[in-house]
Deep mutational scan, measured.
Amino acid sequence: MEVRTIKVFTTVDNINLHTQVVDMSMTYGQQFGPTYLDGADVTKIKPHNSHEGKTFYVLPNDDTLRVEAFEYYHTTDPSFLGRYMSALNHTKKWKYPQVNGLTSIKWADNNCYLATALLTLQQIELKFNPPALQDAYYRARAGEAANFCALILAYCNKTVGELGDVRETMSYLFQHANLDSCKRVLNVVCKTCGQQQTTLKGVEAVMYMGTLSYEQFKKGVQIPCTCGKQATKYLVQQESPFVMMSAPPAQYELKHGTFTCASEYTGNYQCGHYKHITSKETLYCIDGALLTKSSEYKGPITDVFYKENSYTTTIK
């Protein structure tokens, strides 16, 4: 009895394709271990004539594949690729409408935090270190965002349907971005203890939790000093293409032309909904596939993004 075979390709990165001759009487799992086709788990399936010449994702289970996976995804987590594939199996079914010149995501599976993050990423200057993220990001900007969303979920250790947080998501993504040249110098002034300067680099240099107003941050924000008295913390120097200011959701007025974009969060910790506000020729609110415009805006804002380049204080 002759062994019926077909020729397929296996890959971990969709760049390096490895030619395989597979036995049609055995499952993919018996031949390769966990195997995925377009995100779908085909591990328990036997090869079919229609699979001839198709590319299958496999887990990096030998040295060659491990090197290829690390170079593309910059992670050695053995569960990463499987999590990416199972997320992709959902995100490829989502709709990605162009809204006001940006790629958004039609609401499904509690994905409003991903839509808000995706919209924000198209408006701030950011370059990702893992080629996987950078490639998928370019495709997302062009309207094909399924891979990018699935990668975000995998890097953030999230599953489809789980509630997510924009600030946490951005923080994970910033860790995989090139923020080497970003720098922030802060000064804390206390009447009792004097003053202390701190220099922050990388992710810490672009994120701040405690106030939404970048102007206020430049002037000074009140913080408790270690001595128990009130101290003032203010920005001395900022070198970065953008800054992200966050605070627990509270009524906040966004003035046209003073910011790049913002995240609105309605609801409580267990259950809520994100919308995205962007400042173009007027203010726009993007909620999944829905767009509304207004000249002014007041609502429960939790993150505001500002364009920056270089700032030095005039406070002496």
Rank of each mutant, 00 (worst) to 15 (best):
E2D: 12
R4G: 13
R4C: 14
T5N: 12
T5G: 11
I6L: 14
V8S: 05
F9Q: 12
T10N: 06
T11L: 05
H18N: 00
T19R: 11
V21I: 13
D23M: 11
Y28V: 03
Q31K: 12
F32T: 10
G33N: 02
G33S: 05
G33W: 00
T35N: 09
L37K: 11
G39F: 10
G39W: 06
A40D: 15
V42Y: 12
T43R: 11
K44E: 14
I45E: 14
I45V: 12
I45M: 12
K46D: 04
P47I: 10
K54M: 12
F56P: 02
V58E: 00
V58L: 09
L59P: 08
P60H: 08
D63I: 04
T64N: 09
E68N: 02
F70G: 13
E71Q: 09
H74T: 08
D77T: 07
F80Q: 00
F80A: 02
L81N: 14
Y84L: 06
Y84T: 01
A87N: 15
L88Q: 06
N89T: 12
H90A: 11
H90C: 11
H90I: 08
K92T: 11
K95S: 15
P97E: 14
N100T: 07
S104R: 02
K106C: 05
A108Y: 04
Y113S: 05
T120V: 13
E125W: 02
L126C: 09
L126D: 04
P130E: 10
P130F: 03
L133M: 04
D135S: 09
A136S: 10
R139N: 12
R139L: 12
A140N: 00
A142E: 13
G143M: 00
A146G: 06
A146W: 07
N147K: 14
C149E: 06
C149S: 04
C149L: 08
A150S: 02
A150G: 02
L151V: 02
L153A: 01
L153C: 04
A154G: 03
C156A: 09
C156D: 05
C156Y: 06
K158H: 04
T159G: 09
G161R: 01
L163Y: 15
D165C: 15
R167P: 06
R167D: 02
T169P: 06
M170W: 00
N178V: 03
L179H: 03
D180P: 02
S181P: 04
R184V: 05
V185T: 08
V189T: 11
Q195M: 15
Q196V: 09
T198G: 03
K201I: 09
G202F: 02
V203Y: 15
V206E: 01
M207A: 03
Y208N: 08
Y208W: 10
G210E: 03
L212Q: 01
S213E: 06
Q216S: 10
K219D: 07
K219S: 12
I223L: 08
C225N: 00
G228R: 05
K233L: 14
V236R: 05
Q237K: 12
Q237D: 09
E239T: 10
S240K: 03
S240P: 04
S240W: 01
F242Q: 02
F242I: 01
P249T: 07
P249D: 08
Y252T: 13
E253C: 08
C261H: 03
A262G: 03
S263M: 09
E264K: 01
Y265I: 04
T266K: 00
N268H: 11
Y269V: 15
G272Q: 01
Y274G: 05
Y274F: 08
L283D: 00
I286Q: 00
D287T: 06
D287L: 01
D287P: 01
L290M: 13
L291K: 06
K293T: 14
Y297S: 02
K298F: 14
I301M: 11
T302I: 00
T302S: 08
D303L: 01
D303K: 09
F305S: 00
K307D: 08
K307E: 10
N309A: 14
Y311S: 07
Y311D: 13
T313A: 15
T313Q: 15
I315Y: 15
I315K: 15
